[in-house]
């Protein structure tokens, strides 16, 4: 009986996670699929062939999405890593304040901030450019990266660094041969978080990119609100594939011992 109920619970979890994907997958190849048909009466690749045609601008959107998300996550890691190290390793006066400041952007919706900046970006030519979009993507990504890395550094033993130093290693060598090998699983997790946050941004990209920077969410959104289910479903699937691939690549670092996110505020 107990075994049975556990089985039911697990089946429910599986179904719950997968349910919204089912209509997406079917719609991407359906044609004339009207209520009350459970399965389409006709099949068609119209959604896919449109998505891969020149008309859809998909290649451009993919390129710009990747450009924005990879650059924003790399920048966030570069900027966030030193702060993550300090927050994870040291106690100092004002630490709570610093933590609060770094957490603040996760609580305040980013568009409240970007609405204010927008006018300056227009004035100084940053609006409608990739760089402008990358800069505002730092607002939602940097806090997550810093906090994940703080969690990673909290489990990092600095003693190895002093040992390396006493053996004559310089700062760069310490970073390269001691610190990075020890923390890279956490860096990858942080990078994945940042990439996914940036990859999914719609409103910030729309506001600062103004449609000229055309990322996948913008492309998808204009179809999602137009009611063309075939194209919307095909674009949705294309949109989630890189995110899933990234999860597959990084999942080994995400589970088990590396409870980084939970640990950040856990101390």
């Amino acid at each position: 009986m107990k075994r049975f109920s556990k089985g039911v619970a697990i089946a429910l979890i599986i179904f719950g996670v997968l349910a919204p994907f089912i209509p997406l997958l079917i719609w991407s190849v359906a044609r004339r699929w009207y209520f009350p048909a459970i399965l389409p009466t006709e099949w068609s690749l119209r959604g896919w062939s449109y998505a891969f045609s020149n008309a859809s601008r998909l290649p451009q959107a993919l390129r710009q999405s990747f450009a924005v998300s990879t650059t924003a996550s790399l920048l966030a890691i570069l900027i966030g890593m030193p702060a993550g190290r300090v927050l994870g390793l040291y106690k100092f006066r004002g630490k709570t304040l610093v933590e609060f400041l770094i957490l603040a952007p996760t609580i305040v919706p980013a568009f409240a901030v970007v609405m204010g900046i927008h006018v300056l970006f227009i004035r100084y030519g940053l609006a409608d450019t990739l760089s402008g979009v990358i800069i505002v993507h730092l607002i939602p990504t940097l806090p997550y990266v810093t906090l994940v890395l703080a969690g990673v550094f909290a489990n990092y033993n600095v003693d190895y660094e002093s040992q390396a130093r006493s053996l004559g290693a310089n700062t760069w060598q310490v970073i390269r041969y001691v610190m990075l090998p020890a923390i890279y699983p956490g860096v990858i997790v942080a990078g994945m978080f940042a990439f996914i946050i940036s990859w999914s941004q719609y409103l910030l990209t729309l506001m600062i990119g103004g449609g000229r920077v055309l990322t996948l969410p913008l492309l998808l959104f204009s179809f999602a609100s137009s009611g063309d289910n075939n194209v919307t479903a095909a674009l949705s699937i294309i949109f989630i594939l890189p995110a899933i691939a990234l999860l597959v690549i990084t999942s080994r670092y995400l589970t088990g011992r590396n409870a980084s996110l939970g640990a950040t505020r856990g101390n």
Binding site: W199, S200, P217, L220, F221, F239, I240, A243, I244
Partner: peptide, 9 residues
């Protein structure tokens, strides 16, 4: 990692 827009659709 699934974007919210896709979930909404």
């Amino acid at each position: 990692p699934i974007p919210h827009i896709v979930g909404a659709i």
